[in-house]
Design a protein around this nucleic acid. Structure first.
Lengths: 148, 148
DNA sequence: TTCGTATAGTTTCATATGCAACTATTGGAA
DNA sequence: TTCCAATAGTTGCATATGAAACTATACGAA
């Protein structure tokens, strides 16, 4: 049996998942050690809200971050509790809640971004721009291939 | 603000994790639909046991699969319950349990491998060998950069 | 021999997760 | 207008997960 080949065939999902887990664990560790007040998922949601400030609802965050909307409810709960974002009911469609970042949220993001960049720098040591780009493209293709 | 750049900086762990999750969900769905009798993690552990038949303990499986040993105990429990593997106490060191695949386990692996290859084929559509190799290498480097 | 420390594996417990059911609202069709 | 199906968000519940405590065994040092 060609073990390496079989292993690779069977392992792609596992390699991606466990490497991602490792990265997120490192990120969460730093965020927790430095008492920054959010975890990695909350930080990523906050970034999305900043980029689309006042113009995105929770479902859009869920779709974009590939998370269950239940999860997003809970993430926004904690971000709102920390006064980093506000939920505003959309007057044009009262089912939706539009998300707005606060100045405290922007300040938090700067701190979080600092930590994120340090970790990425460590994680991407000795990896060339072109290699990394190829890797992102492959991941993007995989995602598209599997999306319905 | 350069949104794209910031997004990428902060997102690598998330992209890896969620793409891995998507792949494993697809795999688990097939394994469940076709009543194959194991889930993706169990299948991956089984592969490792086949490759190192009779010559690996649970801790080695944990290290290799980057999983908590608690998880491995549970995975081996179910594999043993299904009569796919056996635990044998190592007579040279009675703390260890050496793992051995059964013929039923080998049979199961063939079925699982079939499904895995179909999913990988779908996931890797339109991705060149070289690109894929680069992607694996980047992931390997990331893992090494973060390992203590 | 008798400790003390280290390691393999299991169990316990508290937390994280996500599906499914629920509420509130919309918008189109009868 | 009055339904009815669809959508946004929340909540309840059952399962998955992993850290820490625990058991059993090994092994080197006093």
């Amino acid at each position: 049996m060609n073990n390496n080949s079989v292993t690779h065939e069977e392992m792609l999902g596992h390699i991606l998942g466990s490497t991602g887990k490792l990265l997120r664990a490192r990120f969460d560790q730093r965020l927790s050690d430095e008492k920054i007040g959010v975890n990695s998922m909350q930080a990523i949601a906050l970034l999305h809200i900043i980029v689309n400030n006042g113009d995105c609802n929770q479902q859009q965050v869920a779709d974009c971050l590939h998370q269950d909307k239940t999860m997003i409810t809970r993430i926004i709960d904690s971000l709102e509790k920390g006064k980093f974002v506000r939920r505003e009911i959309d007057s044009a469609d009262r089912r939706q809640k539009l998300l707005q970042v606060t100045s405290l949220g922007r300040k938090l993001h700067e701190t979080v971004n600092q930590v994120a960049q340090e970790i990425e720098k460590e994680a991407l040591k000795n990896i060339g721009q072109q290699e990394l780009l190829t890797c992102y493209q492959v991941l993007e293709k995989v995602r598209n291939n599997l999306s319905p």
